[in-house]
Nucleic acid binder design. Structure first.
Lengths: 113, 113
DNA sequence: GTAACCAGCTACTTCAACGTAACCGGAGCC
DNA sequence: GGCTCCGGTTACGTTGAAGTAGCTGGTTAC
């Protein structure tokens, strides 16, 4: 450990920022049960555009969360899968997703008032 | 349950968006051990400006994560504390924070390449 | 021949989040 | 009178993430 998130200089903030990025959570969850192709991801993660998905995937690849495998075939086949690091992220993110799904009604109720 | 985060119409997305907001995670973690005053929060959460903190607190209050108690004294005393709902969010967020603190070096190493 | 599929890329635009700086009113302190 | 503390507010400017639209090039299916 040795890091304190409350400090401005803490590198964990950068990491949290990446995790907080709009689509990272969805990509990780979508790849939970194994690698998927680009188009499959676009279909599965409703609402994401190809451009933004590409950006998200590139960023996650750069952070070592994702492995991109290009089979160099015709027609193109590219698969995206989680690395060990990415898979380890599944655990905390699953907790967050479950919390969101469980408490969403309470929050929507609170907003009504 | 009954919700699927991958659906565009899923309200959990709104919730995830709020959680993903830059400072929500920090506020929740900062209030882990009990209520704090506005100035104390500004000091504890390094890098946050009064304006943005106000916005974050208002939003969290609206979502029922936070309770704002104004003691109507002079000089003003206002305390912010987590509600039961906010406290329940601590559990998944703590997991995320711990993941970030544990794996930050791996990510920074991956970025070097 | 033409139409769709795959995995994107590029240029352009939009918009909300975030940050900066200054200010407020009442109280107390010196 | 002037300064600080408290809990903000307001106006303004910036930025970067996200969205829109159209294109590519090779391949297979109709």
């Amino acid at each position: 450990m040795g890091y304190n998130v409350m400090s401005v200089t803490c590198p964990s903030r950068v990491v949290l920022h990446r995790i907080g990025a709009r689509w990272t959570v969805f990509v990780v969850n979508a790849l939970e049960h194994g690698p998927l192709r680009f188009t499959a991801l676009v279909v599965k993660i409703q609402g994401v555009t190809p451009k933004v998905l590409t950006e998200t995937l590139r960023a996650m690849e750069e952070d070592g969360l994702l492995a991109r495998v290009d089979y160099a075939e015709q027609p193109p086949r590219v698969e995206y899968g989680l690395t060990d690091l990415g898979r380890s992220l599944l655990i905390p993110l699953r907790a967050v997703r479950e919390w969101a799904e469980t408490h969403v009604t309470e929050i929507l109720e609170a907003r009504e008032r």
